[in-house]
Design a binder for these strands. Sequence first.
DNA 1: TTATCATTGCGTTATTGTGACACAATGATA
DNA 2: TATCATTGTGTCACAATAACGCAATGATAA
Lengths: 256, 256
Amino acid sequence: MSFEKKIRDLYISGHEHYLRNISVDCIIFGFHQNELKVLLLEAKYAGMWALPGGFILKEEHMDAAAKRILKDRTSLDNIYLQQFHVFSEPNRSTKKINNQFMKNVGIEIEESWMFERFITIGYTALVDFSKVHPLPDIISNACEWHNIHSLPEMILDHKAILEKALENLRLQLNYHPVGYNLLPEKFTMPELQKLYETILDRTLDRRNFQRKIMGTGILKRLAETKKGVAHKAPYYYKFDMRKYQKALKSGMGFEL
Amino acid sequence: MSFEKKIRDLYISGHEHYLRNISVDCIIFGFHQNELKVLLLEAKYAGMWALPGGFILKEEHMDAAAKRILKDRTSLDNIYLQQFHVFSEPNRSTKKINNQFMKNVGIEIEESWMFERFITIGYTALVDFSKVHPLPDIISNACEWHNIHSLPEMILDHKAILEKALENLRLQLNYHPVGYNLLPEKFTMPELQKLYETILDRTLDRRNFQRKIMGTGILKRLAETKKGVAHKAPYYYKFDMRKYQKALKSGMGFEL
DNA sequence: TTATCATTGCGTTATTGTGACACAATGATA
DNA sequence: TATCATTGTGTCACAATAACGCAATGATAA
């Protein structure tokens, strides 16, 4: 199916497959080179960036829709996703963007479910940066990681959604163990601390951090140390999945 | 407009006014006689109870829709409402209930937006029990308070939604000051404590509770004491609105 | 009038948790 | 072999918390 045909189909008969007035947007966080990153799409013809998003199939659970969107962009499966907020400003309409888009594609459509107002549910995902293979969707030029601190111009209220997701992530940090999703299987304590510092955007005391993290019991220290580093080699750690799962459910008293 | 006409209108042309596939349900908590209560509607012809809910007008903010629903059921204005979760099981369809309902009303409709699957956004409200005048909506027989611990049979997943709201309320208790919305303007310390104990479903130490609550600074003690009680008369307290508002925004470190 | 008694207001103590900091151990590099 | 940045572990003062004691209050009963 040609690009133009696909687009036309989406505009004309998408509402036969998807729920109306509802979309899902994913904020996909990754951690790389001591920087917190987020995966964004460059919207075609708009010169702006957007959150990876999509719609919910008529018989699909919303969580499944979010997972599907995540998988399409990252090729990752089995990722922990979490809804965090619903955005419902009445002027959340993509009509302008749609018009510009269609003009550039070269199609004219009078009426479409896509012109209506959309309420969007925001989902957060934390992923292992090194395992992601970013892939743009049909209406985007590119799919790239962006540093949290140098975001490009974004469509609609997507920047506000992102900010809210970040705020939410920071709050969660005290109750839910977070590193498991963002780090490789084995990691050092300084790496984990740097992750926390990056998310919280402040420095933490090395020794107190270690004491508190280990106090939760969700980490196991391995006998192995990191090789090929200048100075003292740090130990590797991995998550104790049993205790990690437990902490995910019951939460953990934890103040940084 | 007759009852039957109203219903027919809703089924046939409601989608011209409301967003499709989306509803809002309110969990309205109140506190009375040392019991935590929730406001429920008795669904006509169903013999079951339901959460007060409704739809979002095409140009209406979702928060405004929730407020409108709350006001319609309680006559209360300016109430703090908060979205807490989206429920999106694919089998969330009211088709069965609708069919039974229409059969009893005596109308036949083949197709309706009301038969489709709905995603619902849950909102919590905390209200002053004594100020509420419960009023059923058009599809309900009654609107009554129910004790959290003795709930009637409820339609769809409404009981699960209620449980989730309650869980959410308990979590919130540590970060947001809660009493202001649930208690009358003046109240005693034992009353406030009983409220917390009821929500958390466990007892708290009287003296530590007082110290912590006062430690937040959101309460002012009045010179007046409660009259006509056996034994020592407790002081009245009221919220210091300035500090209360501040605590609402910034949260308050607070562990019970 | 006076004693009783459940309840309130305020205080004390032991324990735990937290923040700030010191110092020895490590191991690649010079 | 000395150097040096970094890691691992420990200590200490202080704040927060839980557990509990006791006197004050004021309606009720003797």
